[in-house]
Nucleic acid binder design. Structure first.
Lengths: 193, 193
DNA sequence: CCAATATGTAAGTGAACACTAACTTACTTT
DNA sequence: AAAGTAAGTTAGTGTTCACTTACATATTGG
């Protein structure tokens, strides 16, 4: 699925609307206004509103997957790898806050199965990369084996998600990367034996 | 703010709709259908759809506050107190799954300020009780003081929230209490020194 | 008995929604 | 130069939304 430049512009505008004012704010009228064209023009690029969201989520999942894979390759040491993975996430969302919504929407939206599946896929992608790092860390003895890799992954992911939520709820008023490093650092410290 | 019995029935039906099929599914038409009366009858009990949600969130926040306060009183020992607090939460949401939505909605809905504020209030209530317990645990030496009580609270809350999200996303297909005990137990173990 | 109150119904309202049909314009390919 | 294509426009469509008005019925307290 290749995304044309004009489609990407629309996707980014859609993400902006959702992240700024919530899902209810994403209407064809408002999206067209932001694009400085009419509602009908939207349908030259996407066949439905749902397709806009699904394409956006697909694009986002691919981006995140690539980034995390490249970070994993660059950092063989597990503790540093996890740290670098979250650093990469913080940097990404700092630069592309319009995609923040995709972290939280899961299980709430359900306007369609396609959207729900797209959101879940993003979560699964992240989980897979993190779980790999944690397992490596357990093998090398860097992380505790008192609890399963799945449990440790859950704790780290939960910590990350809440951090991003609070950043968003605060109107992105603090340095998500700096505070994120502290809190992810603390969580990493707790599972490091 | 006292809630009349008929109002409570409507609130519970509204929570059911949201938890079953998402926020978009909460329409006056569907809510009236579930109550086996007409849309107009809703407006005998609430002056707007927003008031239904705000009243529901207020009711929920009060319930949770009471429960956590009573649990805290019954368990002076911090580690056991935290465990009992989450046990209480698991039991509550197992019995009242219609209120699950309120855990996740934060920062996403924004259909109105009143709703957003109501959801945030629930988060604040929980955080306050948990933070107290963690601070007590640090004072008594039960919990590590390597990280701030706020950071530890964040990690535990994030862990809890993700657990509830996964329960909901799975269609509540597993025993939230049993699995929750394991995962909260692991998190508690990590912060116990 | 009767007036007040609570709780319902039938039948609508205008506004907003996603989406479509028909037509136009600009650029590119042959 | 002609034909095709990409990307817009105007002016709608029917549907659904939250909510309202006017009226009906049942229960209850003085």
């Amino acid at each position: 699925m290749d995304i044309k430049p004009r489609q990407l512009e629309i996707i980014e505008a859609a993400g902006q609307l959702v992240t700024e004012d919530g899902f209810a704010a994403l209407t064809t009228k408002r999206l067209a206004e932001r694009m400085h064209f009419t509602e009908a023009a939207l349908y030259r690029h996407f066949k439905s509103k749902e397709e806009i969201l699904v394409t956006m989520l697909h694009h986002l999942a691919s981006n995140i997957d690539e980034r995390l894979a490249s970070v994993a390759e660059a950092h063989p040491e597990p503790v540093e790898r996890v740290r670098a993975m979250f650093d990469s996430q913080f940097t990404y969302f700092q630069k592309n806050p319009q995609y923040l919504m995709a972290i939280f929407a899961s299980g709430l939206l359900e306007a369609s199965h396609g959207i729900d599946a797209g959101i879940e896929r993003i979560m699964v992608v992240k989980r897979r990369h993190l779980l790999n790092a944690i397992k490596d860390g357990q093998r090398s003895g860097a992380f505790t084996s008192d609890h399963s890799a799945e449990t440790l992954t859950h704790i780290i992911m939960g910590t990350f998600r809440l951090h991003m939520l609070q950043w968003r709820m605060s109107g992105r008023s603090f340095d998500v990367r700096k505070k994120g490093r502290t809190i992810i650092g603390a969580a990493l410290d707790l599972i490091t034996r």
